[in-house]
């Protein structure tokens, strides 16, 4: 295990269950965005064609999207604990957001900063909206025209928002290798945590000493 070479001061940031959630949710989301692009970005759809196949992949991936979330909610106490953290906005978050408006994302924060909290809330809301409107587009027969057009409109607009938010998410990860390492290995260094998340009380997380990687 990689854990054996880790400095003892490293802090566990994500459990294997949470990393699995992030990876599988990200993969399915990637497939959804790629197939959507092939279906609706004109130059790409002219190039690829094969609408029935792409629509089928898109539909089944869409059905799959909430599955990792449900597993995590049911099976991962760590995910439930982090969800409560993400849901709770604290005074520091207001300060963080105010600085972020001036493009400074280095404000002090707890385990998650306000941007991450907003992003996670957006991801959950958008997942529900895309799932429901996607089902409406697929099983459209009983619905009146105006509702079908409305659902298409919402699915399109939220898709645009998902791409914007997803680009921001990847941009932030790109600029912080250690944050990425945190998701890859589950651990971050003590110094990174102090620098980026000084208000994070990691004493319950279990450091490398207390918690061996299984």
């Amino acid at each position: 295990m990689a854990g054996t070479t880790r400095p003892p001061s490293d802090i566990r940031r994500f459990t294997p269950g949470e990393r699995w959630l992030h990876l599988s949710f990200g993969l399915v989301m990637g497939v959804l965005i790629a197939t959507a692009a092939f279906l609706y970005v004109d130059p790409l759809s002219q190039f690829v064609g094969r609408r029935a196949l792409l629509a089928g992949i898109h539909f089944w991936s869409g059905l799959l999207l909430p599955v990792p979330l449900l597993f995590a909610v049911l099976l991962s106490p760590a995910f439930r604990r982090d969800s409560r953290r993400l849901n709770r906005f604290q005074p520091a978050d207001r300060l963080w957001l105010r600085r972020a408006l001036r493009l400074d994302t280095s404000g002090p924060s707890g385990k998650f900063n306000a941007g991450q909290k907003l992003n996670s809330a957006f991801v959950l809301g958008a997942t529900i909206v895309m799932f429901v409107t996607g089902l409406m587009l697929h099983f459209f027969e009983p619905l009146p025209d105006s509702v079908r057009t409305g659902a298409t409109f919402v699915h399109d607009m939220f898709a645009l928002a998902v791409v914007v938010a997803g680009t921001g998410h990847i941009w932030m990860a790109w600029s912080d290798p250690e944050a990425r390492a945190g998701l890859r290995t589950g651990f971050v260094s003590h110094s990174w945590a102090q620098r980026k998340h000084p208000l994070w009380d990691a004493s319950h997380e279990g450091s490398q000493r207390l918690h061996q990687d299984p």
């Binding site: 993400l86 958008a126 105006s146």
Partner: peptide, 25 residues
């Protein structure tokens, strides 16, 4: 707060479904 963001998004989507065909035209 996070919950309010989620509910806000759902409300926005509901509004969009109801008014989307008008917005579209």
């Amino acid at each position: 707060m996070g919950r309010r963001v989620v509910l806000g998004l759902l409300g926005l989507a509901g509004l969009g479904i109801a008014l989307g065909s008008k917005a579209n035209s």
